[in-house]
Amino acid sequence: MDWALPRLVTVAKASAWQYSSAADSEPGRNDSVNTNAACPADEMIPTPSTSHVDYNRVYEPAEDSYLLLDTLSASSESNWLRARFPPTSATPSAVEVGCGSGVVLAFIAANAERLLGRPDVTTFGIDVNEFACKATADTVSLAIKEAGPTNQSVFGGSINGDLMTSLRPGSVDILVCNPPYVPTEELPNESNLDEFADRADFGSDEAFDRDSRYLALAYAGGMDGMEVTNRLLDQLPEALSQHGAAYILLCAQNRPDAVKDRIRSWAHGWSAETVGSSGKKAGWEKLSIIRVWRS
């Protein structure tokens, strides 16, 4: 592992468009989260396969994706989720916004029993990138198949959409989002992605342009790296169910403490806590995951 080397936060989000790795490696998986390593319940659960995904146009699983997997599978988080969604309650829905390769959603779908203490969960992936939507459908379906017959999770489908605008109010129980968190001068324009729809005839330059735009959408977060995350946060009170919880990944430049304080000031009793972090590197925390829920 290369953890001794201080790495910039931007590396994880940037690596996908700068160079794509053919190897299905997973640097950073499970050495990044501060959990009790002595506890057998925290043994590492395998990462779902994404070897079929084209990383020239879909964000490749990286350190940030693996921090989500490790946070969700830590026994502390699993205990919280089990209490929140007891087996006697209705099947929970798990939605990932910006599902990319689908690795996180597939992890939840395939390990429902381990993560939620129940075998039934229904999963949906949402992404602005149509290739990510297809990739997620393949990744999650494959993971469920490989999980075997005791797994009772159902993949509802992928939705090509903007954050949670297409979801019925109150329909999300577990929201997961690894947003574009890297501070950038401006956001890529997503309004004209439709120019590319229905066309198979464009030249290699245009195709490259489209793919670059898709990858930029996966990392470019605008001012403070928070422009997309802020829109997502604004949608939470409407989208989450009464028991709903959101897991959102932030980097240090997003100023997680200020984000949590703001959520806690929302009307009707909201809580926000840091439930996973990549640990302090050179005195500052690189990545963290906050859980947001109605208290």
Partner: peptide, 11 residues
């Protein structure tokens, strides 16, 4: 299309 619904709206 191909089982995926497109909910992206023009601005």
């Amino acid at each position: 299309k191909e089982g995926i619904a497109n909910f992206l709206l023009p601005s």
